[in-house]
Every structure is written in C-alpha cells, then in structure tokens.
Simulated assay, not measured.
Amino acid sequence: MSSESETTGDSAATSAVNGGTAEPEKKPRSFLRELPILILVALVLSFLLQTFVARVYLIPSESMEPTLHGCAGCTGDRIVVEKIGYRFGEPQPGDVIVFRGPDSWSQDFVSTRSSNVVIRGAQELGSLVGLVPPDENDLVKRVIATGGQTVECCDDQGRILVDGKPLDEPYVVMDFPFVPGSQACDTALKSARCFGPVTVPDGHLWVMGDNRSNSADSRYHVGDDMQGTIPLDNVIGKAVFIALPPARMGTISSPDIQGK
C-alpha cells in the first residue's frame, strides 16, 4: 500500500477507536472548472471599474503638448481618467478633462468598428470591459472657463482673460505669435491668439489644448450653436495620471489658473 493509503487508513482506525465516524474525503475542485467563474468575475469587476471609477485612454494627437504626448505614428501617452470626483462636484478651470465631442466636434470622426456583425459584437463587448476603445469621439482638453464666465484673448501681454483677469498658464509652451504694437489684437497683422469675448452658457465649459498653436478646441468651434463650449453632460472624467510609457509616468497637474 502507498503511504497515502496508509495514512488514510490510520485516520479511519483512530476515528473508530474514538467512537467517531470517518468523514468522507473532499475532492479538490478542478481549476479548469473554476476558471470560467474567475474570468466572469474579472470581467464584471473590469466593467464596473471602467464605467464608474476610472478608465485608461490613449492620447492620439499633439493638441496637449507638452503636458500630454501624442502624435500620428508614435507611442502616445496612456492616461488614467477618474470618474468619481465629478459626481460630487464640477470641473474647475485648470483641470484636464476627457469628454465626448459634441456633434460639431465630431464631423470628421470615423468609426473604428468592423462591418462584420460578429466582429463588431466582439468589439462592443471588449469595449465594455476596457479591452477595446469606445467607439466615440473622446477628446482631452484643459478647462479654461466655466458657466457664466466671459473668456477672451488677449491682454497687452498676450494672455487669456476670464472675467477681465489674466490667466496664469505655465503649461503653455507653444502658442501663436503675439507682438505688442505689431502683431496683437488691434493691429493690421492680427495675432491668431485673439478671440472673443464669449460668455460661457450655464452648464457648459470653455476648453483649450495646451498646444495653443495646434489644437482644434473651443476657439475652432466658436461658430457652432454652443459658441464652441461643451456641455457638462459630455464630460467623462478628470485626467489624473500618465500610466504609460514608463518614462513619462506621473501625475497630471491641475493648477489654479485663475488665482484668488
């Protein structure tokens, strides 16, 4: 007899001597039998996290340089966007947000879904759990002004004004030229920085890319029915962290650009 059988036999004999009843040996549950349950639990947890807590998004363009890196054909930043904070408050000037582009912002958007019904269904399922990007025009910009505020550019130093006060924007590195006296908002050769004034409707935001000379933001859409602003309902969440690539990992700052 094997040692295992002997041990089992000894245990049974001991139970009989002690007047007890030997319990039947429990068979270990098969890992392969449990695997589908584990996968299902993981998918449900991923769906809940992606829907209500946070999601990772890829930066595909240069509109937020140098804060966020992205360009055609390169490895763009992957950012973590948290969704909880704005359930208890609203975006503030200086926040970097991800939002669904209104119709006038999405005219050039091309669906990434397959024309094959089966593949498209698999893509939609993958999107629910974060394995496939959502099939919508999700954009990332910085909040400059909120509902009720008036935004315009520029003062005599080329700065954006909100309710007549200049903003402090240390993250802006690339912008259109502004030369007082020769290329400003009141010269024959007008600076491309100039816009407004625009009063932001209640429940809306005025947003701009940090790369001011290469961003199709609220300025670009100022002629639409919302004057370039976006509804608060379109906001998905706040960009808080660069997760990849490893060399660029770090938090995304949201400075108080309007001061006190």
Rank of each mutant, 00 (worst) to 15 (best):
F88T: 03
F99K: 06
P255N: 02
A188K: 04
S15A: 10
G94F: 00
R55S: 13
V173N: 11
A247F: 12
S191F: 05
L68V: 09
L38A: 15
Q227M: 11
D175K: 06
P177T: 06
S46N: 10
G196F: 03
Y57M: 05
V117K: 12
A122H: 13
Q157Y: 07
K27Q: 14
A247I: 12
L131H: 05
K141D: 03
V172C: 00
I252E: 06
V81S: 03
V140T: 04
I257N: 00
V162H: 00
W105H: 05
S11A: 15
T21V: 13
A145N: 07
P255K: 05
P201V: 00
D156P: 07
I39A: 12
R29M: 11
P36C: 10
P201S: 06
N211I: 04
G259I: 01
A42H: 11
G209K: 02
L139P: 13
D175T: 06
E6A: 15
A16V: 07
Y220W: 09
S115Y: 14
T51H: 09
P66C: 03
F52D: 03
W105A: 03
M249H: 00
S127R: 09
S253E: 14
I37T: 15
N18Y: 15
T187F: 02
S61Y: 02
S111G: 03
D175E: 11
G196R: 05
R219V: 01
D10G: 13
L128F: 12
L205Q: 09
G20V: 08
G259S: 00
A243K: 09
F178P: 05
K83T: 09
Y86L: 02
R87W: 13
Q123V: 07
E124A: 15
R248V: 02
P36L: 08
V118M: 10
V207W: 03
I97L: 08
V44L: 09
V17E: 15
A16S: 11
Q183T: 08
N234V: 09
V80K: 08
P66L: 05
H69R: 09
E152N: 08
S104P: 07
L40M: 15
H69P: 08
S213C: 01
N214S: 12
A12Q: 15
A122T: 11
D10W: 12
I242N: 07
F31P: 08
G158D: 01
L48I: 05
K165N: 09
Q107N: 10
Q149G: 01
T75H: 10
L131I: 06
I242T: 11
G94N: 01
F88K: 07
V222H: 12
K165S: 10
T67N: 02
I230S: 03
E90K: 12
H221F: 06
S106I: 06
L45R: 11
R113Q: 15
V129T: 06
V151W: 04
K141V: 02
R113L: 14
R87S: 11
R159A: 04
G250W: 00
P177E: 04
E23W: 08
T14M: 13
I97C: 07
D210V: 12
Q107A: 09
V81E: 04
A72T: 07
